[in-house]
């Protein structure tokens, strides 16, 4: 059967999922810290961490979806993504956050804060961007 949900929920946000950092260390998803992302990106030759500030949160095409507008990197490029309300983002210095933390906790058993305008999320870009 098919559904019309905008994005399928990935399995790795489930509490207890094993995540491998760039140096090979294994951690549970709920134990990840801001430094883990920063240090992993430092090791990576291709990926770079950017700071993406939440500028707007609007309703999406379907009731369970939201459109989040980010201001990405030093250039403050405007990027919109549509995700399910329970989709967690990692906020610098704070940890996992979603637009509907109750639902995230319900579905993934992952403790979450409420994602708000002004929050600065961890995002990735390619190092080799022109």
């Amino acid at each position: 059967s098919s559904s019309s949900s905008p994005v399928a929920l990935p399995p790795f946000f489930m509490r207890g999922s094993i995540i491998q950092l760039a140096d090979g260390e294994l951690k549970r998803v709920e134990d990840l810290k801001t430094e883990d992302f920063i240090q992993s990106a430092e090791i990576s030759s291709e990926l770079k961490i950017d700071s993406s500030t939440v500028e707007r949160i609007d309703s999406g095409q379907s009731p369970n979806a939201v459109v989040i507008q980010f201001s990405v990197g030093e250039l403050k490029a405007q990027v919109c993504v549509e995700v399910l309300v329970e989709y967690p983002f990692f906020v610098f210095g704070q940890g996992w956050s979603s637009c509907c933390p109750d639902r995230t906790t319900q579905l993934f058993e992952l403790s979450c804060a409420k994602l708000c305008v002004g929050d600065v999320c961890v995002s990735l870009t390619l190092r080799s961007l022109r």
């Binding site: 094993i18 995540i19 992302f37």
Partner: peptide
Amino acid sequence: NVEPRSVPVFPWHSLVPFLEPSQSG
């Protein structure tokens, strides 16, 4: 007896959104 199960391991970067600025201007 319990058979050992292979536990999936996910790379760190799959948890982070790839936000690529559109190249305008």
